Computed example of a mutant assay.
Amino acid sequence: MAFAGLVLDRSAVEAGAAEFVLGFIDDYGLNPLLVRVLTTAESRALLPALGHGNPREPMDPGLFIPAVDLCPVVPGRSHLREAPGLDNARLFRLTRSCQKKLRSRYPELGSRSLLHRSKNAEQAWQFVRAVMPEEEASLRELIELRQQAFVTPFPVLRRLSGGYEERAKVEVVDFHGLPAVCKTFRPGQEDFLRRELAALTELRGRMQEVPEVLAHGDNWLVMPLYQDSGRFRRRNRFGLLPLAVSRELIQVLERLYEAGYAHLDMQAKNVIFDERQGVKILDFEFVYRYSSPPGSFAESYDIVGWPPAAARELVAHGIVPQASYATRLQPLTGLDFRSLRHDPEWKQHLKRALYVPTGMVPRLARGWLIGTLKPALRQLRRESTRLGSRMRGGVAPG
């Protein structure tokens, strides 16, 4: 468990960004415990604990959000270089990603820092004592209740989810003497459990690719432990799945469409192959049951993505990822959907060979360039700010 304090600038609060930020925090895997709109006096009291000392863009704290991460991610070296003392890498990623979204959604707020985070639990409690010391005891009780609600109901043998626990943790457990997989959903994410459980229950008798549910509770479900042979994970040196496996992946999606569902989160890691049990589809958290299926598999949501007419309904169901064959699966198959379905095999091999220099290499080069330039630009911005501060203070540079 990791306790955190997040502070939103008053300008963002006044622009109406508070609800968006709260939803973003929840989607990233943290549980907001309460929300405090800060008075002017509380804002001033918080500034020393924040340690926000950029004179060019002074922060005006407007909203304080204490939150808890029940599955924190251990920071790596790169995180600690940029944020010494950090105790949760998820918090680092959250604030950086949220800043980008805020600047995109509210360009009128400029490029200033709008969301500040605590480095660790110790600093988060300093935030609490600065603005709401009377709430410390109740917050500690609330954290304890959250932890108790997230306890795995069976003895844990090992962890499987490894840092991707925005909605649930996945573990191998001792289920009445046999190893099985237990998926425990964190507080507030029970809708994802209900959606997954309903789909698994209905589809189990119609599709052998759907796992069996051995048991379930208010916030957990248990499924068999399958032995993944790695068929859907083995790729060639260019990152492409074998052609036969690519076809098999699409056939699985087509059978799901024929059963009246869209998976909406299909990727190679969500399909496994057990030598005894065959192909199994995993992670039905975002599954969508069609009220009126599209006319063909080629028009299904898993292939074309959401049509605009369905977006409101999907969001209302809490289904938020926008994925399609082109964004999720084409980078694995090296072929567009039509080519994978209809081209002769010789032509498919030719197109896959051409996909590497025409599709993959430019994307990798773009990723390398962005990854190289961004840290340099951030360092340049910090140096520029430091130099400007020294010059305004009457200190000669150098």
Rank of each mutant, 00 (worst) to 15 (best):
A4P: 07
L8H: 04
V13M: 12
F20C: 01
G23V: 03
G23D: 04
I25C: 01
G29V: 02
P32V: 07
L33K: 11
L38A: 11
A45R: 13
L46Q: 01
L50E: 11
R56E: 08
P61D: 03
G62A: 07
L63I: 05
V68G: 11
C71D: 14
L86M: 04
A89G: 11
F92W: 07
F92G: 05
T95Y: 00
R96Y: 05
K100G: 10
R105M: 14
L115E: 05
H116K: 13
S118Q: 13
S118L: 08
K119N: 10
A121H: 00
Q123Y: 13
Q123M: 11
F127P: 02
E136D: 14
A137N: 03
L139N: 03
R146F: 10
F150H: 09
T152W: 01
T152D: 12
P153M: 10
L157V: 13
L160D: 06
L160W: 14
S161W: 14
E171I: 01
D174P: 00
K183N: 12
T184H: 08
T184Q: 15
E190S: 15
R195I: 14
T201S: 15
E202N: 14
R204A: 13
E209F: 09
E209P: 11
P211V: 09
D218N: 14
W220D: 10
M223E: 08
L225Y: 05
D228I: 12
S229D: 15
S229V: 11
R231G: 00
R234S: 07
L243G: 03
S246I: 02
L253V: 01
E254C: 07
Y257T: 07
A259W: 06
I272N: 03
V279W: 09
K280N: 03
S292H: 06
P294E: 05
S300M: 07
P308R: 10
A310F: 07
A311C: 01
I319A: 00
V320H: 10
F337C: 01
R338K: 15
S339D: 14
S339Q: 12
L354K: 07
T358G: 04
R363H: 05
R363P: 00
A365N: 09
L373V: 13
R382C: 05
T385S: 06
L387M: 05
R392Q: 03
P397T: 00
